[in-house]
Design a protein around this nucleic acid. Structure first.
Length: 421
RNA sequence: GGAGAGGUGGCAGAGUGGCUGAAUGCGACGGUCUUGAAAACCGUUGAAGGAUUUAUUCCUUCCGGGGGUUCAAAUCCCUCCCUCUCCGCCA
């Protein structure tokens, strides 16, 4: 949710934001709805005040005087009802309108229409060279019997996979490697609920804009999370945090579920874009005073994890046309996939300023004043995509895959994934 | 799934139609006392929205959610949700 006070003082800021993001939202409509809402609120409050006054007097009256006042109140109720109905309608429109407003993008977020406007910030390592034609992860995984797509499709449909054999060992090794780093940096490890109520989806900014991306249970109106950002952020909803306790840092492992609506035909096959994957996510509640420094540290943590795996990757500063509704700024980490000969998103790191905390009502007290906390989140490790990046980058000419050094201690010393006979 | 109990302020817990934003206790904050602390005593202590202002005053709403009865609802009625206990089932 946006800051309404700021909106009233400076609606042009929001108009400019719509332009930057290429959104077709009419700020003038918002101003009008806000005006109407306040007008009707005032009117309704006035009528209620008169009723309340009368309520104090009535018990002390008797006879004709009492009857007169009571009938007066009856007629006020008629007026009140019509105004209340109008207010209700306006508030509904008001909420619908403003819930579509995005966060204000940060000054360092590049302005651009779509992914073409994203800016490369940095590279890690050189592009790996192979003295043979590198295979993609599907071929590698299938031939090593660590990935079974065919049966998954038979059972669950497209965009599902079985991870098998060494892939399973490697997943757990990865997760442990990541948690080992994160707990050392003061992140509280969490295993969150994978299903949440609608309000959590709305509060974190995924609803209403991206509603069609998520699964809903049939009998209980619960939603499967697309990322543990949702339960982690909602964890402190409706709370006052202690300023001294900030930043609060959490790291969760969870499965994630995405319908991938509208991505038909894109990235078909393999485990790059699937309906269900596992992920370790970092989430931070920070004080606005230093949240931007905290955000850079968060990106640093993400990079530390990825550097440990020895990937060649680049950091992208995502432009206004490509960041999400709640984001003020977002970095993507794109890893080089030799099998695709392309950079692909492996992780992203977002700063949402007070957008989520306004919706979820997460504040802290500083003296007498109250402020909304800043929230930020970053992938620590998207397991599926990281595994496939390992397969493609650590493949050998004979079709085997060597296990990254840092994972070996967590994988029972496993050094290599080889073809079974 | 069956049976029962209950949802009130930071917590505990009163309150069955008007003077109740809500007794009382605890906690927290400020003060007195003290070398300091504790104890004791005194005082303060919820949120959201709006008007007017920019620093004040006023108004409205909120006792699980929604709806209803009434001039008036924490209190009566309907409905939904949630929590707890016991039984069953289950990892």
């Amino acid at each position: 949710m946006i800051d309404l006070e700021l909106f009233r003082k400076n609606p042009q800021i929001f108009k400019a934001e719509m332009d930057k993001r290429g959104l077709d939202i009419d700020v003038g409509t918002g101003m009008e709805l806000d005006r109407e809402r306040r007008e009707l609120t005032y009117k309704v409050d006035q009528l209620r005040a008169r009723k309340n006054e009368a309520s104090l007097v009535i018990p002390g009256l008797a006879g004709a005087e009492k009857e007169k006042l009571i009938s007066e109140m009856k007629s006020i109720n008629v007026d009140l009802k019509t105004f209340e109905e109008r207010l209700e309608k306006v508030e509904k429109d008001f909420n619908n309108h403003f819930s579509a407003y995005p966060n204000l993008s940060h000054e360092t977020t590049p302005i651009g229409p779509d992914e073409s406007g994203n800016v490369v910030v940095s590279y890690n390592l050189e592009k790996p060279e192979f003295d043979f034609q590198p295979r993609n992860h599907i071929e590698l995984g299938t031939s090593l019997d660590i990935l079974d797509e065919e049966r998954a499709t038979r059972i669950s449909g497209s965009r599902f996979v079985f991870l098998k054999n060494e892939a399973v060992i490697l997943e757990f090794a990865l997760v442990q490697y990541v948690f080992n780093i994160l707990t050392g940096k003061g992140f509280t490890p969490m295993l969150p609920p994978l299903m949440v109520k609608e309000n959590a989806m709305y509060g974190t900014g995924f609803f209403p804009v991206e509603r069609s991306q998520y699964y809903k249970t049939e009998l209980d109106d619960l939603f499967l999370i697309g990322t543990s950002e949702v339960p982690l952020c909602a964890y402190h909803s409706n709370e006052f945090l202690e300023k001294e306790s900030l930043p609060l840092k959490y790291a969760a492992f969870s499965s994630c579920f995405r319908r991938e609506a509208g991505s038909y035909g894109k990235d078909m096959g393999g485990m790059f874009r699937v309906h269900q994957f596992d992920k370790v996510e970092m989430f931070i509640f920070a004080c606005p005073d230093n949240s931007w420094e905290e955000y850079e540290r968060l990106r640093g943590t993400l990079e530390e994890i990825m550097k440990g795996l020895g990937f060649h990757y680049r950091i992208m500063n995502m432009c206004t046309g490509d960041i999400g509704t709640p984001n003020a700024k977002k970095y993507d980490l794109e890893v080089w996939l030799p099998g695709q000969e392309n950079y692909r998103e492996l992780a992203s790191c977002s700063h949402d300023t007070d957008f989520q905390s306004r919706r979820l009502n997460i504040k802290f007290k500083d003296g007498k004043n109250r402020f909304f906390v800043h929230t930020m989140n970053s992938t620590a490790c998207a397991v599926g995509r990281t595994l496939l990046a390992i397969y493609e980058n650590y493949q050998e000419s004979d079709g085997s895959i060597s296990v990254p050094e840092v994972l070996r201690p967590y994988a029972g010393g496993m050094r290599k994934i080889e073809k079974k006979r």
